[in-house]
Simulated scan of single mutants.
Amino acid sequence: MSGQRKGADAFLFQLMLGLCAIWGIQQVVIKLAAADVAPLMQVTLRSGIAALLVGLLMCWRGGWEGLRQGTWRAGLLAGSLFALEFFFIALGLQYTTASHMAVFLYTAPIFSALGLHLLLPSERLRAWQWLGIGLCFVGVVLAFGAGVSWTGMDTRMLLGDGFALLAGMAWGATTVVVRASRLSEAPPGLTLFYQLFVAFLLLLGLAIFTGQVGAVRLTPVGVASVLFQGVVVSFLSYFAWFWLLRRYLASNMAVFSFMTPLFGVSFGVLILDEPLSLNFIAGALLVLLGITLVSSDAWLRKRFAGRGRVA
């Protein structure tokens, strides 16, 4: 199957541009509707809506056979980590900007690369990937400096940025669980259902425990936000991604996907009028460069093939 996958073309670029715009605006949408629907309830409802849609689709097209392959333990773990990621997103957006969330969340490939390096011999990191991790680390330090100024320290923003980084860690850990367990051979729909359904149950429990389950006002903005996240982001865009993975080289798609933080920052500035400091801009660029190096392993090996050892 891998030999039949295509390289990048205009169609892939156009579709990835649309997907990255959708993924980039989701944090902005959550923050925009926070006054009407608590962020924790937004991520809870989106998971529930998407889990229902994925479950109905699998009832129609099949895919439940993975349940008989002993995937449920890994599915519970992946779903728990997925819930943790969105819990930190909801918590972090109460303290930091959507722009900061978009950048720190997308450090996830760094953490997944480190985890897979430790668990799978085939995923050992190469020299340029270690360089990318180093650049990303420096970028994170610089971006965190956006919460510190000559007039003092913005502890709320630093706290929110910390939660955003924890969300990125949880996302990276989810990837490690999927890649290093039986879920790697399971149908994509089942893996997605595990994550969405378990996350819905856990996040709903947290919302009830914290008293946020009633923090919902049925305003046009609130309803539109939840439907956009549940139907467009968590259902349609994820299946579009899986569809592309079956037809295009994953390395090309991974590089294109890092347009997402750029969209997130742009939408944060344009829609929410969020400020950007030089520290944050410089740090974000280093983070993006580092992530690109870590995630473009297959492309770099092909690029330097026949030119001697590159790592």
Rank of each mutant, 00 (worst) to 15 (best):
145 G>R: 05
178 V>A: 06
157 M>H: 13
155 T>G: 09
191 T>L: 10
87 F>V: 08
87 F>T: 07
78 A>W: 05
122 S>L: 06
141 V>H: 04
155 T>V: 13
119 L>S: 00
143 A>I: 03
180 A>Y: 00
103 V>Q: 03
183 L>I: 14
178 V>D: 03
166 L>I: 01
83 A>P: 10
134 G>D: 13
180 A>T: 00
85 E>Y: 04
132 G>P: 05
164 A>Y: 05
91 L>S: 12
112 S>K: 02
152 G>H: 07
182 R>H: 03
81 L>S: 06
195 Q>V: 07
197 F>H: 09
99 S>Y: 14
203 L>V: 11
186 A>T: 00
157 M>P: 12
141 V>E: 01
87 F>M: 10
179 R>V: 02
195 Q>I: 09
114 L>W: 00
89 I>W: 09
86 F>N: 14
89 I>D: 07
128 W>P: 05
197 F>R: 11
150 W>A: 03
162 G>D: 11
80 S>L: 07
153 M>H: 08
124 R>F: 08
85 E>V: 02
167 A>D: 04
161 D>P: 07
87 F>N: 04
190 L>V: 06
122 S>M: 05
86 F>T: 10
97 T>R: 14
106 Y>M: 08
162 G>S: 14
83 A>I: 14
152 G>Q: 09
89 I>Y: 05
151 T>E: 14
204 L>G: 13
161 D>Y: 06
196 L>A: 04
111 F>V: 03
177 V>I: 13
84 L>F: 06
174 T>W: 00
136 C>Y: 02
165 L>H: 01
166 L>N: 01
123 E>A: 15
201 L>N: 10
198 V>T: 05
142 L>R: 01
154 D>H: 15
192 L>W: 08
160 G>M: 09
112 S>P: 09
101 M>K: 09
106 Y>N: 14
178 V>G: 03
168 G>W: 02
